[in-house]
């Protein structure tokens, strides 16, 4: 099949970017979107051009590495599907596909379709865990968890951290991502002791990262490859309000966001060789 790819090319965060069109005259409908880019890149390299940088790893929809906008929709038109599992047969013969990276201040661009999502790690780092050190756990069956709670927690925990929710949100809000973790741990008895402080800290970090505020629009859940429900955002709001009211020690820390990658290495590529 024939397709026309219009891809955002940008060498680095500071460079100017632009769309470049590439015809794909012999795409195979069974290819995934990423395999189509593989084929394009092979050609670009052979022609002496710079291949398109895009993030990918597991290619089975679970690692959360991949993702970009296809014609204005995060991960493209097929619901509950990441771009690595999106096959070209879902597009029309001769269609133009516009590929654009996630755009958000908290996801600074690295190159072409690759963005920096360390802000998500910092949100988890600020409180998205149960503070239980190795060795101190009671027997797995010591605390009973109703099947319903386990299922609901699993629904929220299915998040793959791809960032599509932020990308699709008109506000560029990370509420669905943050809410998913707060809901997952807040539902389970193991996460209850830290429920208040977790919500306070994670929300504070989410805000510190420069994401927009949630206005309950719901685009996030529409593009979410794991169909995380909007309910998790309500859970976050509830825990945040509850935590704000009950809080006593007033110790909310946030991690200062950083976007730098360079380690300031003194070792240069031209180092003398022995």
């Amino acid at each position: 099949m024939r397709l026309k790819l219009k891809i955002w090319r940008q060498q680095s965060r500071s460079a100017a970017g632009k769309f470049v069109s590439y015809p794909m005259d012999d795409a195979n409908p069974d290819m995934s979107m990423l395999e189509c880019l593989d084929v394009l890149n092979e050609r670009l390299i052979e022609a002496g051009e710079d291949p398109v940088a895009f993030e990918h790893d597991c290619r089975e929809g679970i690692c959360g590495s991949c993702g970009f906008m296809i014609n204005g929709v995060a991960h493209g038109p097929l619901p509950a599907t990441t771009v690595c599992q999106l096959t070209l047969r879902h597009f029309k013969e001769g269609q133009e596909l516009v590929l654009e990276p996630w755009r958000a201040r908290a996801f600074p661009l690295i190159k072409d379709l690759v963005v920096d999502r360390r802000s998500f790690d910092r949100i988890i780092s600020s409180g998205g865990y149960v503070s239980v050190s190795t060795g101190s756990a009671p027997d797995g069956n010591a605390i009973l968890v109703s099947k319903e709670s386990a299922d609901r927690a699993m629904d929220a925990a299915a998040c793959i951290g791809c960032g599509a929710c932020v990308a699709a949100c008109p506000n560029a809000s990370a509420a669905l991502f943050t809410g998913a973790k707060i809901a997952h741990l807040g539902i389970l008895p193991q996460g209850k002791p830290e429920r208040d402080v977790r919500a306070l800290r994670m929300v504070a970090q989410m805000n510190a990262e420069g994401f927009g505020g949630c206005t309950n629009i719901g685009e996030c859940t529409g593009v979410c490859p794991k169909e995380i429900p909007l309910e998790v955002i309500a859970a976050m709001n509830r825990d945040y309000i509850r935590g704000s009211w009950r809080e006593r020690d007033n110790l909310v820390t946030t991690i200062r966001p950083f976007t730098e990658w360079s380690t300031g290495s003194k070792l240069k590529v031209d180092r003398a060789t022995e």
């Binding site: 769309f19 906008m69 014609n71 204005g72 929709v73 516009v98 654009e100 755009r103 958000a104 201040r105 908290a106 699709a168 008109p170 506000n171 560029a172 809000s173 420069g210 994401f211 927009g212 629009i217 719901g218 685009e219 859940t221 529409g222 593009v223």
Partner: peptide, 14 residues
Amino acid sequence: ARPVGYSHRDNIAS
């Protein structure tokens, strides 16, 4: 929160 906008963004769920 989104200093560089999209060339085009579709709404599918809202």
